[in-house]
Amino acid sequence: MIPTSFDYKKANSVEEALSMLGDDTQILGGGHSLIPALKLRLNSPGTLVDISKISSIKEISDGGDSIAIGGGATHASIANDKSLDQYCPMMGQAAREIGDIQVRNVGTIGGSIAHADPAADWPAILLAADARIVVQNKNGSREIAADQFFKGFFETALEEGEIITAIHIPKSQKNSNSCYVKFKQPASRFAIVGVAAAVEMDGSVVKSARLGLTGVGEFAYRATAIENALTGKPLNETTINEVVQNATENTNVMSDHFASEKYRAHLANVYLKRALRKLG
């Protein structure tokens, strides 16, 4: 398995990387989505711009009301980050479920969401976390809400010549909790259904909920009808069974040899309930 020939440019800063981007170039982050595709020759860029050595986008730092995760932060560094475990526990839970030790040591969150595999874990979590994705281009930088970022099958709001520099995860409020649960495709261990649930309580009732699902449709989405139905209700078995009826409403549910449309839709409900039960 050998990729087609390409040129390689190593960037030492985001600015340098942006200046290297042009026609027929692609960004190489951790490479764990891109290199497999190159090896299978599903993708054959003229030049790779390697951003994996840019230290400024690898950090995870406290940004006041949010945690700023560099686009080049590895899954492993997210899995091991204590502040995320405190302020957004589903991040670490998801990171520890991605790939394997070796993949987590190299693969990055920025690379993963830019690739936007419909069965990847991060999109569900970023939706539920209400994350903001910071991207930089030659003209400066802009922020994209997770809700606007995932747009279709392997399709995002990222434009040509843009690099994901950070993902801002709002710190959850007191009385909030989140979790990620996943039904794995047995071979690849990607999600057949992944559910990220973030719930803020107001006393004994749900103040707000954000529910992200991945693996189910052509891209990750929020189960907004269920989020709304939860609001104002106690988070107990009765509520969960009452509100989680159709977690795939308005979604074009995928079907493959691991899970038919019917089974996947069923699993979406089961796993959404399981996520909520963990928070209840």
Binding site: L28, G31, H32, I35, L48, Q102, V103, N105, V106
Partner: peptide, 9 residues
Amino acid sequence: KAVKSCTIL
């Protein structure tokens, strides 16, 4: 760190 050397240039 353990990595898969087939997936790194």
